[in-house]
Design a protein around this nucleic acid. Structure first.
Lengths: 114, 114
DNA sequence: GTCAAACTTCGACAGCTGTCGTACTTCGAC
DNA sequence: GTCGAAGTACGACAGCTGTCGAAGTTTGAC
């Protein structure tokens, strides 16, 4: 018996997403302070469309990438859903803007290096 | 012979401040991610005037407080100068706004908890 | 010149977190 | 039904950083 079957259904493939009103600024900044995660956010912002984990090139292994997407999801920055075996990632633009006005824009607009 | 005398003058009491054009976003976010440091920034922002280290109540010891002020200074968020034995702290508002538009405002405006 | 106030400096240390590799699951294609 | 692709889960580990206490420095007041 598979583990999904043990838990009843495959609904678990839709991971839980937090209500942004319940996310603390602390958690958001902890998510944005990592350069790899900021890169993910930048890519999603620039693309303007949902992207699979795999199409965003990251300088880390797959398990680490999973970890980073998890942190971003928990911080309310992205929404994740499956299409086939791919997991697509969507930036939660408007919702996030309502909860933390100007923050995402300021971070994305700021140059990384000088 | 004191150490200041060994180094020549007491000019060392004016610590070095970075040019904000040379500060990376990474460093700024690392500074802002700590809640104690964010509290300092909030206090300076709300006060609208320069404050001595001692008048900002922090839940940490003095040596740790010194550390936090140091990090904020290195990140270009505050300017420090001595008046007597007190070290005054000034928020570098306009300079920082020029370098990272909207960022300080977004962080200060965001509620800490929900 | 003595003293207290206000910070700083310097180790030391504990906890967190970003990283990896391996094993596992789920899905689509053949 | 087998196989590969795409991620996930789990343990382990190293490096960073926030914390403290003790000792030191600088200044102003007496």
């Amino acid at each position: 018996m598979t583990r999904a079957a043990q838990r009843g259904t495959t609904r678990d493939r839709v991971p839980p997403h937090p209500d942004l009103r319940a996310v603390a600024l602390q958690q958001v900044l902890e998510a944005l302070v990592d350069p790899v995660r900021r890169h993910i956010v930048r890519e999603l912002h620039a693309a303007g469309e949902d992207l699979a984990c795999g199409v965003i090139e990251l300088p880390v292994g797959k398990s680490t990438a999973t970890h980073h997407f998890h942190v971003l999801r928990e911080a309310g920055l992205i929404r994740q859903y499956y299409v086939g075996t791919s997991r697509l990632n969507a930036l939660r633009r408007e919702e996030f803007e309502d909860a933390f006005p100007g923050l995402l824009q300021a971070v994305v607009a700021a140059p990384e290096q000088r």
